[in-house]
Design a protein around this nucleic acid. Structure first.
Lengths: 226, 226
DNA sequence: CTGGGATTTTAACATTTCTTTACAGCGCGG
DNA sequence: CCGCGCTGTAAAGAAATGTTAAAATCCCAG
């Protein structure tokens, strides 16, 4: 697995680089935006870890430029906590995940792993419309039908379904759902997710008591299977 | 995309400039009215962010002067909260949007983006006439028709519709509507907006119970989609 | 100035959506 | 078999928004 790390601060660059290398990843580094863009466009990486504050070209610029060139390598963005707007902006530019500095090394590894797993095992691009059984979903227009009959999904239900569908085939941990769908820190004492999952099953599964598509993996999380 | 920032206070100038640069815009700055006017008239910008309180020449003067010279670059005006300036004055001078200081960085970005999108989409920012479905709106003459039949929109309704239309595609928070359409401080305990939105839907949507164009984004605000 | 209609705001109630709570059941390792 | 931890689910509660109508305000002809 090849990872490109774009980070200007030498200390952090070495630390993270070593961390990834120790984990068995083949890492390459770049110290500013231009170099990062060049290497990213050239070598074939599985993941790019991109700092936002960079000389010459910001991480956001690099990110957008890559996407415009049609390069869809997974991108993990590193932002300083003080930067308020980053998350929104980054999402629009096509980044895949975020981490605010300072971060725990183990958390970086977890994110990297999650991204790589997602990209490689079943790298599903986000879908606009999706079908399974007799259910049709149009995420853009927020329209859901089962056997032709319109089904009313509330906002959170639709977001949850979308996230599960986008990661279909993989087990999605509760914590990940809390982070990505709900924008919680990591309280993890809420049963909200379970309730929404139950509602989704109620509305979409043929037999909600024996869910075929929205499965629970005990102790791990939930998994959507088409 | 080239943006000209005219702001005399150095701190704010740098902050906003960096913010825009991080988003990938090519930014240039000016520190007073004269310099701003000169640069605006010279270089071809896609957007001018203009503070009102400036040395040598106020933002309003710059704005009017530019319009008189036939320069129709989009203009985003920054006003201090304490300045009891009539928005109508600004409107007549040809500004396209307003933001009162202090403002949230993300809000500035949202405005900038909305303006630029508008500029790129249909040549010039302020929409004088607008159509969707079978509805035609002429904001200048305050005339609205649905399927050819004239519809009576009261003043506030029209202002609200105009603001939503001018920011179509983006989520407009209640607070923003309160500040820009109603000129409230930020009481935010009034349900007035909801009522007016309901009326607009009643008068313009085909199915007011299932609004297609004037959508509510729970917890965020309203959004107009053409 | 005044009355009445149009407009806007406020208030009250209805509905939808989201979260929390409580309890029941199930699985799995002693 | 027991008990603990995890999950399912119903129901209560909380929050946001929709809807309606009355009250307040504005505007202008007379």
């Amino acid at each position: 697995m090849r990872i490109l790390l774009v980070e200007d601060e030498p200390g952090l660059r070495v630390t993270v680089s070593d961390l990834l290398a120790a984990e068995g990843y083949e890492t390459e580094t770049a110290a500013d935006g231009d170099e990062g863009l060049a290497k990213a466009a050239g070598g074939h990486f599985d993941l790019i870890v991109l700092d936002v504050m960079l000389p010459k070209r910001t991480g956001f610029e690099v990110c957008r430029e890559l996407r415009q060139r049609g390069i869809d390598t997974a991108i993990l963005i590193l932002t300083a906590k003080t930067q308020v707007v980053d998350r929104v902006v980054g999402l629009k530019l096509g980044a895949d995940d975020y981490l605010t500095k300072p971060f725990d090394p183990s958390e970086l590894l977890a994110r990297v792993e999650a991204l790589l797993r997602r990209v490689h095992k079943n790298g599903h691009a986000p879908v606009r419309t999706f079908c399974f059984d007799e259910v049709e979903v149009d995420f853009e227009r927020a329209e859901v039908r089962k056997r032709g009959e319109p089904v009313n999904l509330a906002g959170k239900e639709l977001q949850l379904l979308r996230y599960l569908v986008d990661h279909r085939g993989t087990i999605v941990p509760r914590e990940e759902l809390l982070r990505q769908v709900w924008e919680y820190s990591s309280d993890v004492t809420s049963r909200t997710i379970d309730v929404h999952v139950a509602w989704l099953r109620q509305k979409l599964e043929d037999n909600p008591q024996n869910p075929v598509h929205i499965q629970t993996i005990r102790g791990k999380g939930y998994r959507f299977t088409p």
